[in-house]
């Protein structure tokens, strides 16, 4: 297992008022993401624990792309990954912010 933290700055805080959300399952080739609105302003923190070693550069690229496409400011993403592919990770990140944005 490998664990690391990626920090980024979003364009804007994530809209909506939901405090936390969870998406996905730690199944084979899948991941779970816990989203918590715990950071200040435009800060984004992504804590990754992944079963696949040696892919930090790919994670950083996926997160950078996601932060550009979305505007998840103020959110901490805690990830438990069991070998998900980059496209699955992007999908879950987008699902997660959608859920946090729309939930009461």
């Amino acid at each position: 297992m490998e664990t690391f933290t990626i920090r980024a700055r979003a364009r804007a805080p994530l809209p909506g008022t939901g405090r936390q959300a969870i998406v996905g399952v730690v199944a084979s080739g899948n991941l779970e993401i816990l989203l918590e609105r715990s950071e200040t302003d435009n800060d984004v923190v992504v804590d990754v624990a992944t079963s696949a070693r040696g892919f930090r550069a790919v994670w950083e690229a996926v997160v950078a792309d996601f932060v550009t496409r979305s505007s998840p400011g103020g959110v901490r993403f805690s990830i438990h990954d069991n070998g998900a592919r980059p496209d699955t990770v992007t999908l879950r990140l987008l699902q997660g912010v959608k859920l946090l944005e729309t939930q009461p």
């Binding site: 297992m1 969870i22 730690v26 624990a49 992944t50």
Partner: peptide, 13 residues
């Protein structure tokens, strides 16, 4: 699970 190098789940399943 960490001892076995396996990722946990927030709700332990």
């Amino acid at each position: 699970l960490e001892l076995f190098d396996l990722p946990p789940a927030f709700d332990d399943g």
